[in-house]
């Protein structure tokens, strides 16, 4: 641990806040990506059993 002197609080808190925000952003993005991926797979599976292959044309 480097000696941060009298500004330790400022330096540590800015690192903590920034890393916290970045981690939160990454975690939220990953969670939402997983959720949407799973939901889409489910909906697509439902569509297939219904006998529709046309969804491929969807852009």
């Amino acid at each position: 641990m480097p000696d941060l002197g009298k500004y330790a609080e400022a330096v540590l808190s800015s690192y903590a806040i920034s890393l916290g925000l970045i981690v939160a952003l990454v975690v939220l993005s990953v969670l939402r990506a997983r959720k949407v991926k799973a939901q889409l797979a489910e909906v697509e599976a439902r569509g297939k059993t219904g006998g529709k292959a046309q969804e491929q044309a969807d852009g």
């Binding site: 993005s29 990506a33 909906v43 439902r46 529709k52």
Partner: peptide, 23 residues
């Protein structure tokens, strides 16, 4: 990396909305 991931999510979400609307 985040833009890649989130754009994928948006594409999938959009496709899902389209499929649900069709259903």
């Amino acid at each position: 990396a985040l833009v890649f991931l989130r754009t994928q999510t948006e594409i999938r979400a959009r496709r899902m909305r389209a499929l649900l609307a069709r259903e």
